[in-house]
């Protein structure tokens, strides 16, 4: 158990808040209990795109201030079009690259590097929290990389108690189960 769970108190009928709280709990399980190392490349990529877009807008604002409008026309055209292109790229990035992945955890098992990706999805006005965990394994000595996937689809009520606190032990049990089944499946084959 971690300290932060004591503070968390959420309304489980607020879908976004419940999802965020459970996501955080799962991240903690991966980085804490399972001793994986979190990789920030995915979220850093998104932050970079966002920062670039805001930077472009600020640049346009500054340029327009220094060289009032008719003069700044060309720079404005470039900035405005690149801003909207960046927004498009950001949308593509979040829908096709991130796909709701909220934690990427790396783990070294023997010579193999395993990467765990957890993504979650909640429909609007629905209490079902669907969690997908993907395990990618770089194929150690020349073997092809493996990729396995498991999902759980349960109500928020499974993870959150009546007081609105995320029950870390339930989350831990759920993730451990997924973790073990994905890890062992590999050995059977």
């Amino acid at each position: 158990m971690t300290e932060s769970t004591e503070v968390v108190k959420i309304n489980k009928w607020d879908g976004a808040a419940a999802k965020n709280a459970i996501d955080d709990a799962i991240r903690e399980v991966f980085t804490g209990d399972l001793k994986c190392k979190e990789s920030f490349a995915l979220i850093d990529g998104r932050l970079f795109l966002c920062a670039l877009a805001v930077g472009v807008a600020l640049y346009a604002l500054l340029w327009d201030y220094l060289y009032p409008f008719p003069q700044s026309r060309l720079v404005l055209i470039i900035c405005v079009s690149s801003y909207f292109i960046l927004m498009g790229i950001l949308t593509l990035y979040t829908t096709f690259k991130e796909k709701g992945i909220f934690v990427v955890a790396k783990e070294k098992v023997g010579n193999n590097n395993r990467v765990w990706e957890a993504s979650s999805y909640v429909k609007k006005h629905d209490d079902k929290y669907s969690l997908v965990v993907v395990m990618r394994e770089a194929g150690g000595a020349g073997g092809a990389g493996r990729c396995r996937e498991a999902s759980v689809n349960k109500s928020f009520a499974t993870y959150i108690d009546v007081n609105g606190a995320v029950v870390q032990s339930v989350v831990l049990a759920e993730i451990t189960k997924l973790y073990n089944s994905l890890s062992s499946e590999k050995k059977e084959k």
């Binding site: 966002c50 877009a53 472009v56 807008a57 900035c79 909207f84 927004m87």
Partner: peptide, 15 residues
Amino acid sequence: MIVSSALMIWKGLMV
């Protein structure tokens, strides 16, 4: 980004 979207729409209209 919310602020800059509004700003960029305005600047785009200017152009």
